[in-house]
């Protein structure tokens, strides 16, 4: 039963208030993109065992999407940030680096 700080409400939110939305920072492929790129965008997920950048919706709260960085193996949360941030904030990246100094994911 997960919980995150909703970066909009700035309060702790329980998983029962939230809806998961899969991998974050996907680049949308529209008309004109190659078959391979469109397939990658639509289906090929990183699905890492380790640090995962993902989207969650505060559905029974403010109704806003936000980003979460979570380890899929330990469930550790490295932070949450706005859905309109196209890159994770430095603070979070630093926290990850500290946890995984060799840059490799958890496994």
């Amino acid at each position: 039963m997960l919980k995150f700080i909703c970066p909009i409400c700035e309060i702790e939110t329980d998983e029962t208030e939230l809806t998961p939305g899969g991998e974050a920072h996907l680049k949308r492929m529209g008309p004109g993109s190659s078959d391979q790129n469109f397939y990658t965008y639509l289906f090929e997920r990183k699905n890492p065992r380790g640090i995962h950048f993902e989207r969650w919706l505060h559905s029974y709260g403010c109704g806003k999407w936000f980003h979460v960085v979570r380890c899929t193996k330990t469930m550790e949360v490295f932070g949450t940030y706005s859905a309109q941030d196209t890159k994770p904030p430095k603070k979070i990246l630093d926290a990850i680096k500290k946890k995984l100094p060799n840059g490799k994911n958890v496994k």
Partner: peptide, 12 residues
Amino acid sequence: SWMEEWHQTEWW
């Protein structure tokens, strides 16, 4: 939700 999702996460 669909409209909100696209508005918030792609076309904000």
